[in-house]
Write a protein that binds this DNA or RNA. Structure first.
Lengths: 154, 154
DNA sequence: GCTGAAACAAGTAGTGT
DNA sequence: ACACTACTTGTTTCAGC
């Protein structure tokens, strides 16, 4: 598998990333190639796993989530890691979970309705998980930007 | 603006979130409502800003980004914040940037080709920004999960 | 606020170069 | 690897309930 894409691939990815519902026929027209070529390329990009899915980006605040916080989680012992991740997965407010280097074993992203809801998720749910030693929270005041990686690496 | 959606709205959001290119006519069929109702609802959800966009989720590793790190940024003085954010925005490897509570002023997400590229972004770019006092990096070894918030809050 | 129908546009699959 | 054609399916709009 090579990780370089030709001009057509790049343009398809760029155009679909700005609007995943854009008609393939319109992309074809813009790139001055046939309709079916776009279908073939998208199919290939999907089959090779470059395109994972076409997702809908919703406004979390309009859904009622007014608080967002990054949470660093320490473990009592490293061997608890797998089980802790499985428990975190069951907490719907935890949307992201990574093993990381540094002073935390796990780094998670948590969305909550308000500060009280966040407190509840942290202390009634995360702290109750067997093996969790402690947490540090970084509450987001403002999200300045949130975007995707460039398709082509500079 | 109310933040509660009826069954149709919820189902549309759920179905489009699992596949943003799903045909509206198919959603209509599944929900046993008319084709045009789905269009009307999606239009309204988009106009009110609940739906921000239909995006394409790509596999970062297949694009060549093998390193992902959360970076906590300290500032020399709080007044540098706005300017630092604008400089970070120019660094394409920085995909997310938030003002946060706690020991860091800014919390960012950085994607890089490899560890050497990450080092370069951190020390040749972020540390060179005027006002940045220091950084702590949490390098992701594994992303266990990364998902969206539930449409309906439990 | 929702449906239905009709005109139009896009997606799909097969064929050929 | 790409284009062309014919066919199927989805989208859009608007009159009417």
């Amino acid at each position: 598998m090579k990780n370089q894409f030709d001009y057509i691939d790049q343009q398809i990815l760029l155009k679909l990333r700005s609007d995943a519902r854009k008609a393939y026929s319109q992309i074809a027209e813009e790139l001055k190639v046939s309709n079916s070529l776009i279908h073939q390329r998208v199919k290939k990009l999907t089959e090779t796993g470059v395109i994972k899915k076409a997702d809908l980006i919703l406004d979390e605040k309009k859904l009622g989530y007014n608080t967002k916080a990054y949470v660093g989680i320490r473990l009592k012992e490293a061997r608890f890691a797998t089980k802790v991740v499985e428990k975190l997965r069951e907490i719907k407010e935890v949307t992201e979970c990574n093993y990381v280097s540094g002073k935390y074993a796990i780094f998670a992203l948590v969305y909550a309705k308000d500060n009280d809801h966040l407190r509840s998720v942290l202390y009634d749910q995360i702290h109750e998980v067997d093996g969790v030693g402690g947490t540090d929270s970084f509450i987001c005041f403002t999200t300045n930007f949130d975007r995707s990686v460039p398709v082509v690496i500079s």
